[in-house]
């Protein structure tokens, strides 16, 4: 279970997260939506300890990751897989080596097991033929799927997705959504997905949180957000920039 309690973060002198609190239950797919610059990616980086909160707590299975030592944090991170917006593949290694490196971090697999797991992970994301390709030779969608394969190869208990479908065509977006559903159904993974695409809310979300300027504007079921009369929620859901809230053009 992931618990976030009263999380505050400033970057430079700008407050980005202003006292966020929420919980993600085991097995749940939790989608965080919000406008660009609302603090979604910053929030996600707190969940895996890439950023430290100014105050507040992030608890993973009851452990406050902000208070852990470096070694303890590494242990907790082994439960978590993260898919980055750009894929974040290591560009000096082939796709297969990227996944193998992730597996070597666990130090419990033999060379043969690593080879098998790389193959298996690439088959799941339909990239079996791309093992020897370099990241520079991949399309945007392939990079994202390779990033998925790298994260899923470690059999994580939690998956964090940062804008998994941004910049992809509708068919590829559908494919990525199906992959996320597959992970959830087959591996019972708890997922946190950061996005501004409503299609993900409709297709894969169990629960939705809307972030607005670093604060929770909505936290509830996908069906509830559709019916919400809150102006901030309405504006985001309709994508209508003329609605009279916040700044005007």
């Amino acid at each position: 279970m992931i618990q976030v309690e009263n999380l505050y973060k400033e970057l430079g002198s700008k407050p980005v997260l202003k006292g966020l609190s929420f919980e993600v239950n085991d097995g749940e797919t939790f989608v965080v939506i919000g406008k660009s610059g609302s603090g979604k990616s910053v929030l996600l980086k707190h969940l895996i300890g890439l950023l430290k909160a100014d105050s507040g707590k992030v608890m993973i299975d009851g452990e406050n990751i902000g208070a852990l030592s470096f070694k303890e944090l590494q242990r907790v991170r082994q439960k978590i897989g993260m898919v980055f917006q750009s894929g974040a593949l290591f560009d000096s290694m082939s796709v297969g080596e990227n996944i193998a490196l992730a597996l070597r971090s666990k130090e419990e697999f033999t060379k043969w097991e690593i080879k098998e797991k790389v193959k298996e992970a690439l088959e799941i994301v339909d990239l079996a033929e791309a093992a020897d390709l370099m990241p520079s030779e991949l399309s945007g969608g392939m990079k994202k799927r390779a990033g998925f394969a790298r994260a899923i190869a470690l059999d994580p208990q939690y998956m964090l997705y940062d804008e998994p479908t941004t910049g992809l065509d509708p068919v590829m977006t559908d494919m990525i959504n199906r992959l996320m559903l597959k992970f959830k159904q087959q591996k019972e993974i708890t997922s946190v997905i950061v996005t501004h695409e409503l299609r993900i809310v409709h297709d894969v979300a169990d629960r939705v949180l809307l972030l607005n300027e670093g604060e929770v504007a909505f936290n509830g079921l996908p069906a509830e957000i559709e019916k919400s009369e809150d102006p901030v929620v309405r504006q985001f859901m309709t994508g209508d920039s003329t609605l009279a809230i916040g700044e005007k053009i």
Partner: peptide, 10 residues
């Protein structure tokens, strides 16, 4: 974000 990715992989 490759350094973040390294950290995320422990």
């Amino acid at each position: 974000e490759q350094i973040d990715a390294l950290e995320s992989l422990s």
